[in-house]
Nucleic acid binder design. Structure first.
Length: 435
RNA sequence: UCCCCGAUAGCUCAAUCGGCAGAGCGGCUGGCUGUUAACCAGUAGGUUGUAGGUUCGAGUCCUACUCGGGGAGCCA
């Protein structure tokens, strides 16, 4: 009976056939331990001399790492085996003997691993991370589906730059130039006027010359946009959203979190409501810390937070924290100023706990056409490019709000990783585009 | 774009004051009946990133370049 390792417990004391690859081999002369992976999991296969044909035993001694193999054997519960189950080998077929495999069980440098990313994906840590990423993606779709959001796919080719061209990738498009999308938001706003509740989910591109553990040039964004929603509504949506995803990963990817040695007690605390503080309160926190001898540089009201401030603020909380109402001058043109204080806008950033920093940025959008036109003019943005966007205010404008969540930053935090590049199958960074 | 660090065997790294380039892993050969990145013995494996300079002598010091890493700013 054909079986996948992921479901091996269902086949206890039965004979199964597993098609996979030889992950590792340990041998003691008259007993071989083959660690076999099939993509769905890892299992130890035992080959004892005398209990199998002499030819089978000899063959097992000669199979190289990562050779593709089919094994047939009996599934047995075994506490000494890494996965709790073991396969007693009956027969084995080598599909393709692998050449000497470049990746070893011992340590490797990051440059070597990234150059061999196509092979590195087979190793345990990348395998666990990408499976968690998949669970996050499934959770995102299920969450919005359960709330009757429509998935609206924003274009990847976009016409002339809406927010300036410095961080956009330019691509030739027949006899003109277009840019790779850096956000689906403006299209999402059009979508929410048509479908009320929508979300976009797709790759986005930023040509920022950023060289940090939090940046990729190609990354995936989820951007819900909701008609008639105010800032508070969107913060509630965001905390429910993040809570749902984290709890789903805890429920379905416990084994993978353990492989990554993630402290799940931290994740177990991720439940609504999250903390909420204003930008002004956050500035005060940083000041107070500095007065009592802290090392985080102090900021004046009106300055945007840098990495040290953001890390400090997030580290003061055991759950993610919303920082809302930033100074108007720090934020994008489409954000609506607070009617009670026009110096700040109705925006919110969600900072992940443990110093992982911003995972969500959102706001209530400016729905008044005059205010929006004034802002576009003031920031020197091309008016023609925004005409269709202004139409959304001309024809039945309503308050609306939305946010953007960076998939890879979320996965980095959930997995407790040091660097974002491990959360996407083939990372694109400023100086690496292959494999 | 700016600042800091690095490049030695297939991989991860040593090499004292400028004085014979070495270990583990991986490969190969052999041993081992419960291994967990198995272990033990033997063995092969080098244009020290590139180009130049100083020196009796350079992996080591100097200059430039290339590639990579870490951080800043900006952001998700």
């Amino acid at each position: 009976m054909k079986a996948y390792i992921e479901k091996i417990a269902d086949y206890k004391d039965k004979e199964v056939e597993i098609s996979g690859w030889l992950y590792n081999k340990r041998s003691s002369g008259k007993i071989h331990f083959l660690e076999v992976r099939d993509g769905t999991g890892f299992i130890q296969v035992v080959v004892v001399k005398g209990q199998v044909d002499e030819g089978v035993f000899e063959l097992c001694d000669k199979i190289s790492q990562e050779s593709s193999i089919k094994v047939v054997g009996n599934v047995r519960e075994e506490p000494r085996a890494p996965g709790g189950y073991e396969l007693d080998l009956k027969s084995i077929q080598v599909i393709a003997q692998a050449e000497v495999y470049p990746l070893q069980k011992k340590e490797h440098g990051i440059d070597f691993l990234l150059s061999n990313r196509h092979l590195w994906l087979r190793s345990k840590a990348p395998w666990a991370i990408i499976r968690i990423r998949d669970e996050v993606i499934r959770s995102i779709i299920d969450f919005f589906h359960s709330k009757d959001f429509i998935k609206l796919d924003a274009p990847i080719f976009t016409p002339s730059a809406c927010e300036g061209t410095t961080t956009l990738f330019e691509v030739p498009y027949f006899d003109q130039k277009v840019y790779l999308s850096q956000s689906g938001q403006l299209y999402g706003e059009a979508g929410c006027m048509a479908f009320n509740k929508i979300y976009t989910f797709g790759p986005t591109f930023r040509a920022e010359a950023s060289k940090t553990r939090r940046h990729l040039t190609e990354f995936w964004q989820i951007e819900p946009e909701v008609a008639y929603a105010k800032l508070d509504d969107i913060m509630e949506l965001a905390e429910q959203f993040v809570t749902y995803i984290v709890q789903r990963v805890l429920a379905n990817r416990q084994k993978e979190l353990k492989m990554l040695e993630r402290d799940v007690t931290i994740l177990e605390k991720i439940k609504v409501p999250f903390y909420r503080i204003s930008y002004s309160e956050a500035i005060e926190m940083v000041k107070k810390q500095s007065v009592s001898g802290g090392e985080v540089p102090i900021l004046q009201w009106g300055d945007d937070f840098g990495a040290p401030q953001e890390t400090y603020i997030a580290s003061q909380f055991d759950k993610p924290v919303f920082v809302h109402r930033y100074p108007t001058k720090c934020k994008a043109f489409y954000m609506k100023p607070d009617p009670e204080n026009p110096d700040v806008v109705l925006c919110t950033d969600l900072l992940a706990s443990e110093g992982y920093g911003e995972i969500i940025g959102g706001s209530q959008r400016e729905e008044n056409i005059q205010a929006l036109e004034k802002k576009i003019e003031k920031e020197g943005l091309p008016k023609e490019a925004h005409e269709w966007y202004l139409d959304l205010r001309r024809y039945g404008s309503v308050p609306h709000s939305g946010f953007g969540l960076g998939l890879e930053r979320l996965v980095t935090w959930i997995c407790g990783l040091h660097h974002i590049r491990e959360t996407i199958p083939f990372p694109r960074t400023i100086d690496r585009v292959s494999p």
